[in-house]
């Protein structure tokens, strides 16, 4: 994992600093920039050091927690600590939403294959998978936020509240969760449907039915349990997609999360912030994969890692 993190950080650092644009020109409004300010700014940000030196310096201060944003001068770890709860809350809710409803739809489809219901499920999941996040988000905002007044159009909690009160926050999180979770839902539904169909054709299902078990028990206890195994792997590789989605969802719903932090940092060429967010996301994906591997072994006794 450590070599992976080093690789990711070096590669992203290279990509960041080779992108056109000079951070020093963006920190001061053009109208207020003078030659002296510009020079001082480049020295302060250490932009005139050679790239490898800057990389080592940046990584060292990242690990001591002293790395600071070019723009706000706040410690990047502090900013991320401030922004992570929103993204984590949203991510967990979206995963739960996607898994629960995706499984329900998939099971419903698999038990009545090639029926009207199955077709409807297929259309729904294909739509859910292809719908652009920002368009979907704007449509929901316009309908439920502006027209019907059912939900607040944006934000994460009521104005004036500073705590993380789940009840007060719930209405704010409904639309973002749906938008972010819909892709996962569609994915899970497709997966569950096909592995469920495969499981329902197996010998042990016939045996179960022959024993005289009720269809409910056959489907839920025997078939579903086995067909959920592959779904565990999805969660591992859906994480990068969720992070990508969070960038857009957080922007449209004005949520104070890490995805938005990343976008703002890119537009300000705030190298320390971009790098830290990238490394954090990389670690999240690595851990996600690790967890799904472990879960896989736990769920399926046949799998043993040497």
């Amino acid at each position: 994992m450590i070599p992976l993190v080093i690789g990711v950080s070096a590669l992203s650092y290279a990509v960041i600093i080779f992108a056109p644009g000079d951070p020093a020109t963006l920190l001061v409004d053009r109208e207020q920039m003078t030659a002296e300010t510009y020079t001082a700014m480049r020295i302060e940000l250490g932009l005139d050091d050679p790239a490898p030196v800057r990389y080592v310096k940046t990584m060292r201060s990242l690990f001591t927690g002293e790395l600071r944003s070019f723009r706000t001068k706040q410690r990047v770890v502090d900013t991320i600590a401030e922004r992570a709860p929103a993204t984590l809350t949203l991510g967990v809710l979206a995963i739960i939403f996607g898994l629960v409803f995706g499984t329900l739809i998939g099971v419903a489809q698999a038990t009545r294959p090639y029926s009207r219901l199955d077709d409807l499920g297929t259309i729904l999941s294909l739509t859910g998978f292809s719908i652009p996040h920002f368009w979907f988000a704007l449509m929901l905002i316009m309908l439920f936020g502006v027209r019907l007044h059912w939900l607040p159009p944006s934000g994460i909690r009521p104005i004036g509240s500073s705590d993380w009160n789940p009840i007060a926050m719930a209405p704010y999180l409904v639309m973002p969760t749906i938008v972010l979770g819909t892709g996962l839902l569609a994915y899970v539904a497709r997966f569950v449907r096909s592995s469920m169909l495969e499981a329902l054709g197996q010998d042990y299902i016939r045996t179960a039915r022959a024993k005289g078990l009720r269809e409910r028990i056959v489907v839920l206890r025997h078939a579903l349990r086995n067909s959920l195994l592959p779904v565990i792997t999805i969660v591992g590789f859906i994480l990068p997609l969720l992070i990508g989605g969070a960038v857009i969802v957080e922007n449209v719903f004005a949520l104070p999360g890490m995805g938005r932090l990343a976008v703002d940092a890119v537009f300000a060429r705030d190298y320390p912030v971009i790098l830290t967010v990238t490394i954090f996301s990389a670690i999240a994906v690595i851990i996600g994969n690790l967890i799904s591997d472990i879960l896989y072994a736990v769920a399926d006794p046949r799998i043993r890692y040497g």
Binding site: P152, I159, V252, A254
Partner: peptide, 20 residues
């Protein structure tokens, strides 16, 4: 005065229309 920070102008517009 509460200054809300909108990364996307269309969100601010929706809030202006909904009374947020």
């Amino acid at each position: 005065i509460v200054q809300r920070i909108f990364p996307d102008p269309s969100t601010a517009l929706a809030e202006l229309r909904s009374g947020g």
